[in-house]
Design a protein around this nucleic acid. Structure first.
Length: 293
DNA sequence: AAAAACGTACGA
DNA sequence: TCGTACGTTTTT
């Protein structure tokens, strides 16, 4: 792709590229540029570009970069079998999480409660109310909810026997639990394309009912008050540059819409269709068919 | 039905 | 406070 201007690490200077100070209209053949952009899709090296309105055709947002599939959690934390999820940006933004601080424990319960509160608040607010599966699992563990874990003998082995492996990542390769099994009661989680939610029941059992209930989030999404987020994984989401030619690009100032070629596949669906709530994960044979894809 | 315009949630 | 972009409403 010639438009990226050479090496993948070469970025256009991002300073002083305001709406008014950007290059002039006729600085380059627009059609040719558009064609080039259209021909370069997901494999384009990370290069920051701006359109004529000064809008960055930016790489995926940091929040999207933080998003992980289950298998990515595995890849990021290959040795973390004790359930401490520190992955990429998370470790930076949540200094309390990465390592279980071997701190002296004067008032253990009080400190733990305060720390859990902070962590939950960070996760629930900082990530727009969505709990990543690994984070939810971690929080449950910190809350001392052993009683919510499945019996390690029966539960884990059951799931291991399910041979749950696919392109996204199987349950069995999830890094939490003994021997790569899945020690958490699946009923505690709600799977949606937007992420894995911690079920209300889990929050109540943990004595954390004061935190925003996940069902509220779901209803908020359905009622339209809560904006859904890009999945970050579909081809349009992975595309990093605007085409500059579609109606959304051409009409960005008034349209307020992302480039049509970058519109998330999930967001194109109706929220009601996308929000697949699995209150109970009873049928383990069916796990494959419902995993976030 | 599709496109355009608008209101506003959300993150930096 | 501002830019981006999701969701809704209006227009074509």
């Amino acid at each position: 792709c010639s438009i990226v201007g050479g090496g993948g690490d070469e970025r256009l200077p991002c300073t002083h590229w305001t709406m008014s100070s950007g290059r002039s209209e006729g600085s380059r053949d627009r059609t040719a540029e558009a064609l080039e952009r259209n021909s370069c899709t997901e494999d384009v090296p990370v290069v920051e570009r701006r359109n004529r309105s000064g809008i960055i055709s930016e790489p995926l947002s940091k929040s999207l970069k933080r998003s992980r599939t289950l298998s990515q959690y595995t890849a990021a934390c290959p040795t973390n079998t004790n359930g401490h999820a520190h992955h990429n940006g998370e470790a930076k933004s949540h200094p309390a999480k990465p390592q279980p601080p071997p701190q002296p424990q004067p008032t253990v319960s009080a400190l733990a409660a305060a720390k859990l509160d902070r962590t939950l608040e960070q996760v629930l607010e900082g990530q727009n109310g969505l709990l990543h599966f690994a984070q939810a699992a971690e929080l449950l563990k910190r809350a001392g909810m052993e009683h919510m874990l499945l019996d390690s003998g029966s539960g884990a082995s059951d799931l291991e026997g399910a041979s749950a492996v696919d392109s996204v990542g199987g349950v069995a390769d999830f890094p939490y639990g003994v021997g790569g099994g899945f020690p958490f009661n699946p009923g505690l989680f709600i799977m949606t394309p937007a992420g894995v939610f911690l079920a209300d029941s889990a929050l109540h059992m943990a004595g954390l009912a004061e935190y925003p209930a996940q069902s509220e989030l779901a209803s908020a999404i359905n009622s339209g008050k809560k904006k859904r987020k890009r999945c970050g994984m579909c081809p349009p989401c992975r595309r990093r540059i605007n085409c500059e030619t579609c109606s959304s690009c051409r009409n960005r100032k008034t349209g307020h819409q992302i480039c049509k070629f970058r519109k998330c596949e999930e967001l194109k669906k109706k929220p009601s269709a996308a929000l697949e709530v699995r209150a109970q994960w009873g049928d383990r044979d069916d796990i494959e068919g419902h995993r976030v894809s």
